[in-house]
Amino acid sequence: MELWRRAANPWGQEVLIGISWDLMWAAVFAGLAFTLAHAVWAKWLAPAASTDASGGSSVAGLPAQILRHALSERVFHWVMSAAMLVLLVTAFAPVMGIQFPWVTIHWIAGLVLTATIAYHIVHATFWQDFWAMWVNGADIKAGVAELSHMLGRNGTEVPKAAKYPIDHKMFHHGAAVSGLVAIVTGIFMMLRIDTWLGAANPYLLNISDSSWGVVYVVHGISGVALFGLIITHIYFAIRPDKWWITKSMIYGFIGRDKYEENFDPARWVIPGAEPQQEELVPAGVGSPVGGVDDAAASAGGGDPAAGGGDGPAGGGDATPVVEDAPAGGDDEESGESSSGERTSEAGGLD
């Protein structure tokens, strides 16, 4: 298998021009192999559910439906997913033999992705709990325990997760790094095609052709990495046992039972509910404040009622962030009211 594509430049010097498409197939293979292995493992080999010392959580005051993803996050997630999917399809389908005019779609989708990521970075930095995605000691401990458990050490106790379990966080970081790298390299690459930025000019910025090769290779690697990550991501999203998480990215909520089953209330504090432990988030950042104004639809589906922007909004307002769904739907839809919205939730690439 070749890793890189090389070519002689006009002066006969060998330069990188991109990754070998073998790498794409490797990513496909790796992604599918992982999902297959996981599926097999999950169906036949997975040990029984771990026992958690704390047993089923029981938190007083938990609503029946717990908001996991605010509308803005969900909109962000799906717009970004769409852009990412378009990018991956436009990048790899032609290589796989499905041919269509992909370049313009690809770079426009790239711009959309860039915009969503930019929004997300700003949003996560200033309006969300930036650190919620941070991998901390507890996460690592939990991750190690989870791994041990998966490897069949039945006795291992797997601690319950914070709002984002370590695997979600690792995925987020992997995707974030790959995505950012793809975006930065992709913007450079736009100089070499006709775009809104101007006509193609391979000599802009005076970058040597070997450096350009590195840009293409890095873009290719990040693309291939994203390809692999997205395969696994989609796999988990459509697994029935994870469907409740997927649904939370659609409707915003998880059921109380899922919360109690999977999360450590001390590590994912639901405002309004009684925390049993000190919250773990660093001081000064995103105390659990309210703000989901725009709660969405019924967990049971069917009735797409919009949460009112009126009631529970307001920065620093400690009103319960969650109402029982379905919420009254008499207010006009408003997903945008949340200039003061502050939650402890990092929007997620869940």
């Binding site: 021009i17 070499r192 391979p202 350009w212």
Partner: peptide, 30 residues
Amino acid sequence: WPCYRAGGNTCYASAPTAMNREHAILGTSR
């Protein structure tokens, strides 16, 4: 030259310095 058509990542002929008297005015894409 390792241009797009040759599997590379550049169009040398559309560069502002390029010698492209014979080249295309329509339907181009890279």
